[in-house]
């Protein structure tokens, strides 16, 4: 099918779909439910997606180098269990942070070794890592939900910095750091060149293997940070295995204009992609859409965003 688009439309296609979806949802909400449009209410809604937003920062990094990371679900589960079960004994609450980061580092090194060195398909490798971690957690918990989270983290989670809830502020800071890291450091150039063409990057002297491994290690460490934030948002631990978080992260990243290999959306496109998910959640809840409707809407949004991008790629 030959797509003939007029120049106006094709230049609009260059903008990540997240901005349009965000604007549409925002206007819908503004018109229909103006009472929800205040800083406090929106803060609560945006706070819920802060862990997802942090997870997306890692996801966009690996998707830029034509890989994918679904092991975030496993990291989330094991960090959650470690903090709520008391399995570590009587340690200081602050020790959970280095422990979680260490776990993320180990998972990332395993992912990186398998994907970068052994050339295992990233989907398979990271999914298998998730099933292994989930199995270990369920074995330790023998199917029973673990205990309560330490209050310390929950107290931090509920604080506010100016008008932003702390997790949201933390998320914004991390996004700024990632944006600077990708645009100002050599590593960012490596990532971009591998995304464009791995073979060309290899022959231009870019250390492809090392960059992919580092991207995966960073993604898993970021996932463990997301896990810390997510764990502090809940009062009681859970061992429910769900791939929703990493899959939503992939969806938000695509919505934000970062597709496997191509990164026009930068870091802020996916940021708005995550905000879209927050608003979508509010809109559908306030209109009383049942669960099947939410599933269909989520699928349609991902598909339409991907189609918009695919049409653009087909033209160029």
């Amino acid at each position: 099918m030959k797509l003939t688009l007029n120049p106006m439309f094709s230049s609009l296609l260059r903008v990540p779909p997240a901005y349009f979806v965000f604007a549409a949802l925002f206007v819908t909400l503004w018109v229909t439910k103006p009472q929800l449009m205040n800083v406090n209410v929106m803060g609560v809604f945006v706070r819920q997606v802060a862990p997802l937003g942090i997870l997306v920062l890692g996801q966009l990094l690996v998707m830029r180098v034509r890989s994918i990371d679904l092991s975030g679900a496993g990291v989330l589960l094991i960090v959650n269990y470690m903090m709520s079960s008391g399995i570590m004994g009587d340690i200081h609450v602050l020790f959970y942070i280095p422990l979680a980061l260490l776990l993320g580092l180990i998972v990332g090194l395993v992912n990186g070794y398998l994907i970068g060195r052994r050339r295992v398909s990233a989907v398979i490798a990271t999914l298998a890592v998730t099933t292994i971690l989930a199995g270990i957690v369920q074995f330790f918990a023998s199917g029973k939900p673990p205990g309560a989270m330490p209050d310390f983290y929950n107290d931090i989670y509920n604080t506010k910095i100016w008008i932003f809830p702390s997790p949201v502020a933390f998320w914004i800071v991390l996004t700024v750091l990632m944006s600077v890291f990708l645009s100002r450091f050599v590593f960012g150039r490596y990532v971009a060149s591998i995304g464009e063409n791995p073979t060309a990057a290899h022959f231009s002297g870019v250390p492809v293997e090392r960059t992919v491994i580092i991207a995966h290690v960073m993604a898993s460490v970021i996932a463990s940070i997301a896990a810390l934030v997510q764990s502090s948002s809940i009062a009681v631990g859970s061992i429910r295995v769900g791939l929703e978080m990493p899959i939503d992260a992939v969806a938000a990243t695509i919505l934000g204009g970062v597709v496997f290999g191509r990164g026009e959306g930068g870091v802020w496109g996916p940021f708005f992609g995550v905000l879209c998910f927050a608003l979508l959640f509010v809109v559908m809840t306030s209109f009383g859409v049942p669960e099947p409707g939410k599933l269909i809407a989520r699928g349609l949004i991902i598909l339409l965003a991907a189609i918009l991008y695919g049409m653009r790629a087909a033209k160029s």
Binding site: I247, V250, A251, P292, G293, K294, L295, I296, R298, G299, L300, I301, I302, L303, A306
Partner: peptide, 9 residues
């Protein structure tokens, strides 16, 4: 993946 959500819905 998106079809998975739609069909499940």
């Amino acid at each position: 993946l998106s079809m998975q959500f739609i069909v499940l819905g």
